[in-house]
């Protein structure tokens, strides 16, 4: 899927620049990575050229991203448009916002909420409900006179429903696989490929699969259920992981490293590549999702794992031979 010609004819430095552009694009495939590694090992010139690129990118390695951006690009004009879009939702939090909202005719209104990779955000909704939005998520809030609807397109949310005065409006989360109606207060929903994972922390939630509404079922407190558009796949006791993310942690209890890294990857841009020999290693503990660099370093300290970083995008985890 790579669109650039193999950079063999260009000078080594030109080629290194082209490789860097390809690897940082967010579109690099496994084949690209393999080709890049092969290129790098092809000759001393290639190796040296890549080292010069790393000397540049290495300057950025210990700069916290947000702080660096705020210092080096202090004008934030680009953010404004996005912020305006979210104004509708956030406005509802403040007193005047609430007033304005109550005075609107009851028509449906939409607002996009998006989080970047690694970002978690708490959003207060006009009815007093609270959403914690996990990394890399997209959703709409569509409240109407008759229901409070959240459309989860991607990612994960934790819902804490608020109590409204006035006529009851059901609180519903829609995923690609079906509808979840809150019969209580606190639950989390994760949209994955072709499946929805529901975890209920308080009271209960009714599930209506998209293509089989007659197979509706209720998941009660302390239980989690995975379902597809055609019905229930699993119903099992809640794992601590189901809610730890909402506090900013990945909780692991003797988890295979491969699963842990897959989870960590959700919070980190670029590539985490775990050598196959390491897949079965077990890991335990609570790890902050806000600092994935620190998590990786602690893995390298406590497990027989060696980290190799090629820019911020590619982190190789390989067996440490001592």
């Amino acid at each position: 899927m790579s669109t650039i010609p193999p950079p063999t004819e260009q000078s080594a430095l030109q080629a290194a620049i082209a490789w860097y552009a390809q690897l940082s694009s967010g579109e690099a495939s496994e084949a690209d990575h393999a080709a890049w590694q092969a290129w790098r090992e092809q000759s001393a010139e290639h190796h040296a050229a890549w080292q010069r690129v790393e000397a540049i990118t290495g300057k950025f390695e210990h700069v916290p991203g947000k702080l660096g951006m705020a210092t080096l690009t202090p004008q934030k004009r680009l953010e404004r448009r996005k912020a305006l879009k979210q104004f509708a939702v956030l406005l509802a939090v403040s007193g005047t916002g609430w007033q304005a909202y109550r005075e609107l005719p009851w028509q449906s209104w939409n607002a996009d909420i998006r989080t970047a990779v690694g970002e978690q955000r708490t959003v207060a909704l006009a009815d007093g409900s609270q959403l914690i939005v996990n990394t890399d998520s997209v959703l709409d809030v569509a409240f109407s006179a008759t229901q409070r609807l959240i459309r989860l397109h991607q990612g994960e949310i934790m819902v804490d429903t608020g109590q409204e005065s006035g006529p009851y409006r059901p609180f519903v989360v829609q995923t690609r696989e079906g509808l979840l109606t809150a019969l209580g207060t606190r639950f989390s929903v994760r949209q994955t490929d072709g499946r929805t994972l529901l975890s209920v922390l308080a009271h209960a939630v009714k599930v209506e699969p998209q293509s089989a509404p007659e197979q509706a079922y209720t998941v009660s407190q302390g239980m989690a259920s995975l379902f597809s558009a055609h019905g229930k796949i699993t119903l099992s006791p809640l794992s601590p992981q189901a809610s730890s993310w909402a506090n900013g942690f990945i909780y692991a209890d003797n988890l295979p490293l491969s699963q842990f890294i897959a989870e960590l990857q959700r919070y980190r841009k670029g590539w985490l590549r775990l050598a196959p020999e390491l897949h079965g290693l077990k890991i335990s503990g609570s790890f902050p999702v806000a600092d994935t660099d620190a998590v990786l370093r602690s893995i390298a300290r406590t497990l027989p794992v060696r980290l190799t970083m090629f820019t911020r995008y590619i982190v190789l985890l390989e067996p440490r031979t001592t």
Partner: peptide, 22 residues
């Protein structure tokens, strides 16, 4: 050019995201 490069280095943004932002 400066912002694009910083977004890559400091935010790990993909080229598609940067294209949209800029």
């Amino acid at each position: 050019v400066r912002i694009a490069f910083l977004m890559v280095q400091l935010e790990g943004a993909s080229h598609a995201e940067i294209a949209q932002r800029l």
